[in-house]
């Protein structure tokens, strides 16, 4: 077939695809579903007011910020010619703030208690639950990004994984009673990173075009 003929066939097809952002409601619905099932089974923390304490509030707000930034970055990555702008730098600021909070806590408390604060009682549930909660929203987000044209499928997948992981950690933080920054700075970050890695691997496979 000549290029001329291909152009004739292409211009007869007046149906442009759907924008990747159109998949956002599905991602949020998947997140709500995952959160709903999780809360129904394991409940919110019994002392919700404690979540507002100065060293505890960031464990909800920081993952939320990271999730929102990564979500914006993922959708940008799906559109060729769009620059990432300040988003990656802002995302890096999130673990920096978490580390600073943890350091502040370190200098304020007795070294004898550091190890106990850091490992807590729920390290394994935390590390398992955050990536699990992220799984369904991640799948929905990758589905949305497939409508896009990411120049680096793995990087777009990484952003998607961090978005799903960050938002999943936000949900998890309202259940979790481990309020020491030593705990959440370490293990929430690891949980989100696992989700990010999953996203990168999956993105490399499913976001090619």
């Amino acid at each position: 077939m000549k290029t001329e003929d291909l152009i004739a066939a292409l211009s007869a097809d007046a149906t442009p695809g759907a924008a990747p952002e159109g998949g956002l409601p599905w991602m949020l619905a998947a997140l709500a579903l995952a959160g709903g099932v999780f809360y129904a089974a394991f409940g919110l923390r019994a002392d919700p007011m404690a979540a507002l304490a100065p060293f505890t509030l960031p464990k909800t707000l920081l993952p939320l910020a990271l999730g929102a930034l990564a979500l914006a970055l993922a959708f940008r990555a799906a559109r060729p010619g769009q620059s990432a702008g300040p988003l990656p730098a802002l995302m890096l600021a999130v673990p920096a703030v978490a580390a600073a909070t943890a350091l502040l806590r370190l200098v304020q408390t007795d070294p004898a208690g550091w190890a106990m604060q850091a490992t807590g009682k729920t390290m394994v549930p935390c590390l398992v639950t955050i990536p699990l909660l992220a799984l369904l929203p991640l799948a929905a987000l990758l589905g949305a990004l497939r409508r896009g044209a990411p120049l680096s499928p793995a990087r777009a997948g990484l952003a998607a994984g961090l978005a799903a992981g960050g938002l999943a950690a936000t949900l998890y933080s309202l259940h979790c009673t481990e309020d020491s920054p030593l705990f959440w700075a370490l293990w929430y970050s690891t949980g989100i990173a696992i989700s990010g890695a999953l996203g990168a691997v999956a993105g490399h496979r499913v976001l090619r075009w």
Partner: peptide, 29 residues
């Protein structure tokens, strides 16, 4: 390869935002 690129432009044209200039998008694709 030219046809492959044309097909990609066609199927991904909705990822171009109509308020942007087309060239950066086109060259990236």
């Amino acid at each position: 390869i030219v046809q492959e690129v044309l097909l990609a432009i066609h199927l991904k044209r909705h990822t171009w935002r109509t308020k942007d200039p087309i060239r950066p998008w086109l060259y990236a694709i």
